[in-house]
Amino acid sequence: MVLSTAPDVLLAKRIAHVLVEEALVACAQVGGAMTSMYLWQGHLEGCEEIPLSFKTTAAALPALHRRLCELHPYEIPEFLVLGAAAGSVAYLDWVARSVAVPPASSPA
């Protein structure tokens, strides 16, 4: 599972739609607004963000990270990977079948 956030619900839904459509994730969940507090470049920031969670495979993580960064306006978008210690075999199989791992890009 990958956790991220978006600055507004419209962008969160767009990111979720694109990542599912491109088969980088089996499922994308868009949560309700929350307030994030953090230090950025030495200043305390507080803003409303939309939480995102993505169900994917370990093999798809590099491509998912690349694509999320392309779609996201933040200089450093949140990208936290949480491993599954256990889970329903049927669900994990569905995730694996739903995610298409793009071929590794060749060096230029």
Score class of each variant (00 low, 15 high):
W94Q: 08
V30R: 05
F54C: 07
R66D: 14
R66F: 01
E48C: 12
V25S: 11
S53Q: 13
A12M: 09
V25G: 06
L3V: 04
A90T: 13
V81P: 09
F54D: 03
F79P: 13
S36M: 11
P77I: 08
L10T: 15
A84W: 10
G87V: 01
M34Y: 05
V20P: 04
Y38R: 03
L44V: 14
S105P: 09
G87H: 06
L39N: 12
E49V: 11
G83Y: 01
K55F: 00
Y38M: 07
H65Q: 15
S53P: 00
L3M: 13
L19Y: 05
S98Q: 10
V20W: 02
S106Y: 01
E70P: 00
A86L: 03
L52H: 09
I50V: 15
L52Y: 07
Y74E: 05
L71D: 05
A96D: 12
Y74V: 06
P73V: 12
F54A: 00
E48Q: 15
L61E: 04
A16N: 03
I50D: 03
F54I: 04
V101S: 10
A26M: 06
R66V: 06
A59W: 02
A104W: 00
L3Q: 11
G46K: 13
V101K: 11
L44D: 00
A96C: 11
A16C: 03
C47F: 00
A12I: 09
A12Y: 06
E21M: 10
M37Y: 14
D93W: 00
A108I: 12
C27Y: 08
A6D: 03
L71A: 05
V30P: 03
L64C: 05
P102T: 04
S88I: 09
V2E: 01
Y38L: 12
L52T: 05
L52M: 05
E45M: 11
G42H: 07
S36I: 10
L64Y: 06
D8P: 02
S53Y: 09
V30K: 03
E21D: 15
C27P: 11
H72S: 07
C47Y: 01
T35N: 10
E70F: 00
Q29F: 11
H17L: 04
P77K: 07
R14M: 06
A33P: 14
P103Y: 01
C27R: 13
E22W: 07
P102A: 09
T56D: 10
C47G: 15
A84L: 14
E78F: 00
V2C: 10
A90R: 14
G46T: 15
V89W: 11
C47T: 14
A28K: 11
I76W: 02
S36D: 03
G31R: 02
L11G: 06
A23N: 13
A58S: 11
I15E: 04
P103H: 09
L68S: 04
L71G: 04
A100N: 10
R14V: 01
V101P: 01
L80Y: 02
C69E: 15
G83M: 01
M34P: 02
H72D: 12
T56P: 13
F79S: 09
L44A: 13
T5R: 03
A63T: 09
P62Q: 04
P77G: 03
R67Y: 03
T57E: 11
A63S: 14
V20K: 01
S4W: 06
G32R: 15
V2G: 08
A6I: 10
M37G: 05
K55M: 10
R66G: 02
L3R: 09
S4A: 10
L19M: 14
G46A: 15
